[in-house]
Amino acid sequence: MTRVRLPFDWRGFAVPVCLLIAAELAIVLSGYNGASVARPSDIAGGAVEALLDGSMLKATRETLISAGAGLLIGGGIGLVMGVLLGLFPVMYWLFEVPLEAIRPIPSVALIPIVLLIFGLGHWMEISLVAKTSLWPMFFLTHAAVRGVKPRLLEVAKLLRMGLVERVRKIVLPAAAPGIFVGFRLSMGAAMIVAVTVEIAANPLGLGYAMMEAQERLRPDLAFAYLFWVGLVGWGINAGILALQRRLFRVPAQGAAGP
């Protein structure tokens, strides 16, 4: 018997499709007419509606601006700190206590403080995204810089390279794969914090769009946004993974997505 070979493993799609059909049937057959959940077909309709009138793309842009700017600032600080503290262990030892004191504070617990400082809007969100996305970048950069072969650093010393030149020509290229993993983790954290802040406080972006849909008793829209948030997060992660494989030709770890 010849088996038809599909380009993907169909089994991963079977369950979600069946679940969607079951949900649709259950809601239709029970005659449910409340505002808590919506039929999958209505959710699809809601998604199309929000996509066509541009509100979904506008919300996506707002979330991505906050997440991206926060990632640039936080990831940038994390990168610089990771390189410096990786090259000079003494500095790492010195900074250990203050860093470990700040790190365990959950970003959402800082919402009231940044609200007082920045008010509502992009900046309070950006500051919290920066605070969160700093850590994966810092830790992985630090580990990667510590892992640069001592011989390479000796060569740099022999060539009498200055600090900037040493970092640019030796350390960063050697540590690049680890730094990239940090970047991917930071990006994931950035999206999560951005949406969370929008749900909890900030009237912007995808998170707020979900809250608003719920308040307007539009569960179809709320679910559509939920799936969209998942899709955007998944897409960004898949894109960075593909880039990572292209750049470094290493098997990706902790790959998300089928």
Binding site: V37, G188, M191, I192, V195, T196, I199, A200, G207, M210, M211, A213, Q214, P219, A222, F223, Y225, L226, V229, G230, G233, W234, N237, A256
Partner: peptide
Amino acid sequence: PLPASALFPI
């Protein structure tokens, strides 16, 4: 990768 907080509205 889905933010767990996205469950709140639902």
